[in-house]
Design a protein around this nucleic acid. Structure first.
Length: 578
DNA sequence: GCCGTTTTCGGCCCGACTGTTTTCAGTCG
């Protein structure tokens, strides 16, 4: 069940789409889009604010009109304007907006002049040639639309951060090998560490005369299956995996401006641009200029500096207040991957992992970690070979033996990832939990519970005196399973009260807590625990995704228990238990 | 429709590429 914020965001986005197809004022359309984005980004539940207009208009991007529509939704579950707009166009038209190269103008034209009411109509009429002879649409354009339709049917939009990043590294590496290329980096939502990525943006710098050769080499790379656009400075390709990769070639003196521009976010850029205008300057993807004079452009740092801002880490560039902090030079010193010194959630062959206690501990020690916790599944996870109470007792003994053997290399803690059952009870009795050094309590089943029930369930688990960390609280799987929608505000307050940590599960499938929830937790003073939930050696590498997400939330080293020293972590763990 | 240190009107980011044009509209990012 989507939250009120998500439902409202979808309604406002849909109203914007319809208004655009109906050729309404584009600024009005943008206003609806902004409201949609703000609602989607907002950590606070708008239902909690209630249908009070004067409170709702306090939200940035929500004016009187949007406030009334939100209030209407909160009271009736519907927005009359939305229903009325939906009645004005065939349902199938909205889906056509997802087809690359097809925008509102063309869709409107197809609908009004050729009777296209959806994807099936479009496909049929493209086949029969009924769409030729429409104004402004030649053979080539129709062919491209036909190709895009075929692609849209075979591929699904975004991919996970962890899928896009290795590919981006590969492309950057290939481009760096070209002799014309001076610098290369990926930008876009990937650089900002978003949990899903639409396409990969790569920026390279080179002297102008070398640009053509770079574009040629780029579109000829092995994974490229389609060339969508190829120009002197801008090219776009599709790869075998269906991923789109965009390349921009700029001159070295423009590199910082380009990197900044294409890192985004769009909203962050708009604020920056306005800030430049306020200072009598102009900012675009090539430079910060004053009149005809170039003021800055080679590095991001110098551009921010001229705009009286500290350099803002990409993960914070979402127009969520970072500009104010940068102005006052109060940006947090964000956590870095090297700050992490402990892994507190991992599985071994005792349950569903692929490595022994010793292999796990050795890999962690090799990374420079001082502590690991062995946390195999509890008995309820039958499919994951969860441990019965008897097996857990034996497992604890095995962990103690390994810990003694390896005590000069690393500290090994005996823990468990204990199921939070549907009713909020834990999967082992307290008498057994007491024997462990730490308990990660996580929901695994009944992940479609109503929000209220889910909240009560997780609150009950937090109440258990032996719980140290709440693991992946929503149980979502990115792009695949929505998971629970508990009242995060209540959970965070309870975690703060109890003094336990909330996990930010670093697995690229999970990233749970998500960035906005992690931000709420930090603001409430709750400590985070960034863990990979490793089941085998390569999984520890997923730490980077958890750290990126934590950085998006504004996390510092001080707010993450995995960054504590060995002694401090041991002390903190003891402090959470009776 | 939203917003305000030029605040209740007037502006809202802007450049590259494509395909269709003979100077530009549409789309994308």
């Amino acid at each position: 069940m989507p939250t009120a914020n998500q439902q409202l965001a979808a309604l406002f986005a849909q109203m914007a789409d319809i208004l655009e197809i109906l050729e309404s004022d584009r600024f009005r359309v943008n206003a609806f889009r902004k409201t949609s984005r703000v609602l989607d980004d907002m950590a606070e539940d708008v239902a909690g604010i209630g249908p009070d207009i004067s409170s709702l208009v306090q939200i940035d991007g929500v004016g009187k009109g949007a406030a009334q529509r939100i209030a209407e939704f909160l009271e009736t579950g519907k927005i009359a304007d939305h229903t009325q707009l939906m009645d004005q166009i065939p349902d199938g038209l909205l889906g056509l907006l997802n087809i690359s190269g097809l925008g509102p103008k063309t869709i409107s034209l197809f609908w009004n002049q050729a009777g296209v009411e959806g994807l099936d109509d479009l496909k049929a009429k493209l086949e029969t040639g009924e769409l030729t002879n429409l104004p402004g649409l030649g053979k080539k354009k129709l062919e491209n639309i036909q190709k895009s339709v075929a692609f849209a049917e075979s591929a699904g939009g975004r991919v996970r951060l962890g899928q896009a990043m290795p590919m981006a590294f590969w492309f950057v590496g290939q481009l760096e090998k070209l002799k014309q290329v001076k610098q290369a980096a990926y930008a876009g939502s990937l650089r900002r560490g978003r949990e899903t990525i639409g396409d990969i943006d790569v920026i390279v710098s080179a002297e102008a005369k070398g640009a053509a050769a770079i574009s040629d080499a780029f579109v000829a790379l092995e994974p490229v299956t389609d060339v969508l656009v190829k120009g002197a400075t801008k090219s776009s390709v599709r790869t075998r995996g269906g991923m789109q990769v965009d390349l921009r070639v700029v001159e070295p003196r423009q590199y910082g401006a380009a990197l900044m521009y294409f890192t985004g976010s769009k909203e962050h850029n708009i604020v920056l641009r306005q800030r430049a205008i306020d200072r009598g300057m102009n900012l675009n993807e090539y430079a910060l200029t004053k009149g005809n004079k170039i003021i800055a452009g080679q590095t991001e740092q110098e551009i921010y500096q001229v705009l009286d801002l500290a350099w803002i880490p990409p993960e914070l560039r979402e127009d969520r207040g970072e500009m104010i902090l940068a102005e006052k030079n109060e940006l947090p010193k964000l956590i870095e991957i090297g700050d992490i010194k402990a892994e507190l959630h991992a599985h071994t062959t005792a349950s569903d992992g692929h490595w022994s206690i010793e292999e796990y501990a050795a890999a962690a020690a090799h990374r420079g970690f001082h502590t690991v916790a062995v946390t195999d599944h509890s008995r309820g996870q039958g499919q994951a070979n969860g441990l019965s109470s008897q097996r857990l007792e034996q497992h604890i003994k095995n962990v103690r033996v390994a810990a003694a053997q390896m005590k000069n290399q690393i500290t090994i803690l005996a823990g468990s990832e204990v199921d939070i059952l549907a009713n909020g009870q834990l999967d082992y009795p307290d008498s057994l939990l007491k024997e462990l050094d730490l308990v990660v309590a996580s929901p695994h089943a009944a992940l479609t519970q109503e929000p209220k029930k889910a909240t009560d369930r997780l609150l009950k688990a937090i109440d258990n005196p032996y719980v140290t960390i709440m693991g992946h609280p929503t149980g979502r799987i990115i792009l695949s399973r929505e998971g629970l929608n508990p009242d995060m505000k209540q959970l965070i307050a309870a975690a703060a009260q109890r003094g336990i940590a909330l996990e930010l599960n670093a697995n690229t499938m999970r990233l749970d807590l998500r960035d906005t929830h992690a931000r709420m937790a930090i603001e409430a003073g709750v400590l985070l625990s960034i863990n990979t939930d490793a089941h085998g050696p390569d999984h520890l590498d997923q730490l980077v995704y958890g750290v990126l997400t934590a950085r998006r939330a504004g996390a510092t080293k001080a707010g993450v228990i995995n960054c504590l020293s060995k002694a401090a972590l041991a002390k903190w763990l003891r402090g959470t238990r009776p």
